[in-house]
């Protein structure tokens, strides 16, 4: 199960599993993000390409709108490895 919580000041916490079964809901939630934000992934156990795709599309939309995009923090070992293989460390600011 994936949980996405919005806090004040552009701070988003995501926890659980960001897999293909969450695509529709997560697309809607991240589609509502309209400002550059910090995404805290400390409680995110797992991510697959479905989650990567949603984050990528959000990043492209925010950057093309003139913002600084998403800053990703506190990635666990598995999530960080997936981001590295996907080359996302080159298109996101990541602080693990």
């Amino acid at each position: 199960m994936l949980e996405i919580d919005f806090n004040s000041g552009g701070h988003i916490q995501i926890s659980g599993r960001f897999d293909a079964s969450q695509t529709e809901r997560a697309t809607n939630v991240f589609g509502s993000v309209n400002e550059s934000s910090t995404v805290d992934m400390a409680e995110l156990e797992y991510i697959s390409s479905a989650g990567l795709g949603i984050l990528l599309e959000t990043q492209q939309r925010l950057i093309s709108g003139g913002g600084t995009g998403l800053k990703l923090i506190n990635l666990n070992k598995h999530v960080l490895e997936v981001f590295r293989i996907a080359g996302f460390h080159q298109v996101f600011e990541i602080e693990s």
């Binding site: 697959s48 390409s49 479905a50 990567l52 795709g53 949603i54 990528l56 599309e57 990043q59 492209q60 950057i63 093309s64 997936v82 293989i85 996907a86 298109v91």
Partner: peptide, 13 residues
């Protein structure tokens, strides 16, 4: 970033 596409990432992984 502007040229990246989500398609194909799963197989790449």
């Amino acid at each position: 970033l502007e040229e990246r596409k989500p398609g194909g990432l799963g197989i790449h992984l």
